[in-house]
Design a protein around this nucleic acid. Structure first.
Length: 765
DNA sequence: TTCCCTCGTATTTTT
DNA sequence: TACGAGGGAA
């Protein structure tokens, strides 16, 4: 039997025999445990693995679930269907390609590919992409697809000028994707639903196969996903969904909260289990979380409980600007490192752009960090370029891949030849690749370009012939070799990094081959699976959270994770809640749920920070504290001010007053609570006392002077520095900014060199 | 054709 | 700030 400790509610959910089951699982209540235990229990009870389908949102969740189930039981789980909505949809579309308009070698377009395709379509139809941004059109089409509105139906729902453009573009875009044998992200779901609802024998086959269907994070399902689930569970009606309406944070992407709110009405006789025992956070943290979420109206009432101790109060930290915020967090972490490990910390923020200040501060202090999200690995230029070759070899109709590959490395084919080729292809309704194969003698294309194209297509064809004998890794290596991609990269300015990324890609490809052997879909080739996973993989899946580093990420990425210590930063009105997000209906409640998600990530210690001034979009902006801060129970908070920016202070004080006026839950005269349990801040307090003497305290707030202890490394021509390998040198020139910043340096021993400042670890001489 | 520079603009979250 | 697009020069 399964040896997994479960509380009574968890057990009820795991043991519930048949029919519809809704598990309302609060944050940290052991929802993954329930899901995995339930699948394990089903298998132990004799349900064959291939009759069970478990759907998640992220690859990471899917992998984890598979592993945990395997650990729990002695049976083999071979044949079990575990995957994300998108990967399962892709798998179905591949298996059933006979019933669809594409063949099984279809390409999956990511956002970038599809935006480019849209731009092309818009230009062809005479819609100026500058007047209507392809991104906006893309969003419209995306939400249409998520609501299962197809191209031909869209026109009837057009209600403004943009939507009339979309109504025009959408069908042409669909035609283009079809011609290219490609699906975009949303198509996977839409086409899968069409397949299931429109093809009786396919629907029957899957509906009878899946005796049990389980869905994780049900609150994040959109309409297409909902219909997918419904179709899968149509026959046996053993549907178990797990979710938390309070953690629904993807409404902007089409998630429909009503899916979970209406579940009981939707599946009559559904049994409901509530998991309200939290095993993660201290009471202080939970009280704050509960107070936050209770401000929302549209939710199922519930309240998290914990048996943990009160713990430290939640810190509310006021800084002058984002640099000080970052420095404070860094120094706080440094101090806590005596009792915690670096991977116990997470820094969360609303927008990716906020990571920069933290990167700088952490680099300065020599603290290791990892950024989850940002520029995802699979969206890096070199990675997309290399993969484009493989995509094109596999699917010759993939014009997006063709355009990418032909441009780089340079081979005498420029925009002019490409335009000409595209015009001819358009005229004859044929893929670019085919056009390029017979380019000789076509007018408008130079001799040089012809030669380049010929060598290119011949290379592709030669590779294509070899393909059946190659593993994914070998195929990728052949691409790199045939087209001299590695040497082309190494000639580029920052080629070393890019080359490294490509080797990393090869390494993950090698690992992939091993994993895919275990994958339950025996019909799919190694390469098909590889390209699919490369298209659907996200940054989150690549992260190794065990490695020794502090994690930086957006709140969205943090869902489902937990950390002993969490810094939730940038709590300013306009940034969090984000103004843009407030424009949509229910926006504020969704932002609040996001805040709730952030708060509930913390196990032991939580700090919330906000600043007076912040650089946003190249402009210095003043901000007032987030209205969320006014919703917190004062008895579980401790407040402090960091830094001593002169104007910043007087100004912020006014803003603080204004912002909190009329909110009784937080008082400015509120001093440090918590008495004895304040060891976290002992050192802070001592320093604060010191500064209180010379600087003075106002309103009972604890002041902590960060002061000028940080001397930033001066990087300007003439400055003398030390490089760990090259030794002493003098800076000649600085160019580039941020990550890209490079320094040209005259070294005493090794002469003049260019180094990437990010990696160089320069110190003042 | 390609490279480089300048200019303009857009800046949320992402399976 | 930061990236892409577009223009101009080699």
């Amino acid at each position: 039997m399964i040896s997994l400790p479960l509380n009574p509610e968890q057990r009820e959910a795991v043991d519930h025999p048949e029919g519809a089951l809704l598990v309302l699982a609060g944050a940290g209540s052991g929802k993954t445990r329930v899901l995995t235990a339930r699948v394990a229990r089903l298998i132990e009870n004799g349900v064959a693995p291939e009759h069970i389908l478990a759907v998640t949102f992220t690859n990471k969740a899917a992998t984890e679930m598979r592993e945990r189930i395997a650990e729990l039981i002695s049976h083999s789980i071979h044949g079990l269907w575990v995957g994300t909505f998108h990967s399962i949809a892709a798998r179905l579309l591949r298996r059933e390609s006979y019933h669809t308009s594409r063949d099984r070698w279809f390409t999956i377009y990511d956002k970038d590919d599809s935006a480019r395709a849209l731009k092309e379509v818009m230009e062809a139809l005479g819609h100026d992409p500058k007047r209507w941004s392809p991104r906006a059109v893309q969003n419209r089409i995306s939400s249409a697809k998520n609501s299962l509105v197809e191209a031909d139906q869209y026109a009837s729902s057009a209600f403004d000028v943009l939507s009339s453009v979309v109504a025009d573009v959408y069908p042409a875009y669909e035609t283009m994707l079809n011609r290219r044998n490609a699906y975009d992200f949303d198509d996977l779901l839409l086409e899968c639903v069409k397949l299931l609802e429109g093809t009786t024998d396919v629907a029957d086959r899957y509906a009878s196969q899946f005796i049990h269907v389980l869905v994780d994070e049900y609150q994040d399902t959109n309409h297409a996903q909902y219909r997918m689930v419904k179709a899968f569970a149509a026959r046996h009606r053993n549907l178990c969904v797990v979710g938390d309406d309070d953690q629904s944070i993807y409404a902007w992407r089409g998630a429909d909260l009503n899916n979970i709110l209406d579940f009981e009405r939707d599946f009559e006789g559904a049994h409901v289990v509530r998991l309200e025992r939290n095993y993660r956070s201290t009471r202080s943290i939970l009280e704050v979380a509960n107070a936050v979420i209770e401000c929302n109206v549209g939710r199922k009432p519930k309240r998290l409980r914990t048996e943990r101790e009160m713990g430290h109060p939640v810190q509310v930290v006021h800084c002058a600007d984002e640099r000080q915020e970052a420095s404070w967090v860094a120094s706080e972490i440094e101090r806590l490192l005596t009792t915690y490990r670096v991977n116990n910390f997470a820094i969360l923020y609303r927008t990716n752009a906020q990571s920069r200040a933290f990167e700088e501060a952490f680099r300065r202090q020599g603290l290791p960090y990892r950024i989850v999200g940002g520029v995802p690995f699979y969206e890096r230029r070199e990675i997309k370029d290399v993969l484009a070759y493989l995509r094109l070899v596999v699917n010759r109709s993939d014009d997006a891949a063709f355009q990418r590959a032909i441009i780089w490395p340079r081979r005498g084919v420029g925009t002019k030849s490409l335009k000409r080729l595209a015009a001819l292809a358009m005229q004859q309704q044929r893929p670019l690749f085919e056009m390029a194969c017979q380019v000789d003698g076509l007018d408008g294309i130079s001799k040089v370009a012809c030669r380049g194209l010929r060598r290119f297509t011949e290379g592709c064809e030669a590779l294509r012939a070899l393909l059946p004998t190659l593993t994914a890794k070998e195929a990728l290596e052949s691409c790199i070799e045939t087209f001299g991609l590695a040497s082309a990269l190494s000639e580029e300015e920052d080629g070393a990094d890019r080359l490294e990324n490509v080797s990393e890609l090869l390494a993950t490809t090698a690992i992939f081959v091993r994993e895919s052997v275990e994958d339950a879909d025996p019909e799919a080739s190694d390469l098909e699976l590889y390209l699919q996973s490369a298209a659907l993989r996200t940054d989150l899946d690549e992260q190794d959270f065990d490695s020794e580093a502090i994690t930086f990420m957006t709140l969205h990425n943090a869902k489902g994770l937990e950390f002993p210590i969490v810094f939730l930063t940038g709590l300013e009105e306009g940034l969090f809640p984000l103004t843009r997000a407030l424009e949509s209906e229910g926006g504020l409640e969704e932002e609040r749920r996001l805040f709730y998600v952030g708060v509930t990530r913390a196990m032991d210690l939580l700090a919330l920070s906000y600043v007076d001034q912040r650089w946003r979009a190249g402009m210095q902006s003043h901000s007032i504290p987030s209205s969320f801060l006014g919703e917190l129970p004062a008895e579980h908070l401790s407040k402090r001010v960091v830094g001593r920016s002169r104007q910043g202070r007087s100004q912020s004080r006014k803003q603080l007053r204004g912002s909190f006026r009329g909110s009784p839950s937080i008082g400015l005269s509120h001093a440090v609570p918590g008495g004895a349990s304040f060891s976290w801040h002992r050192e802070t307090l001592q320093r604060a006392e010191g500064s209180a003497r010379d600087g003075g305290q106002e309103d009972g707030e604890v002041r902590y002077d960060y002061g000028d202890s940080q001397v930033p490394l001066e990087l300007s021509p003439g400055a003398r520095i030390v490089h760990p390998q090259f030794g002493l040198g003098e800076i000649v020139k600085i160019y580039g900014v941020g990550q890209e910043m490079k320094a040209e340096i005259d070294f005493e021993k090794v002469g003049r060199k260019k180094v990437l400042v990010v990696h160089a670890e320069l110190r003042p001489a």
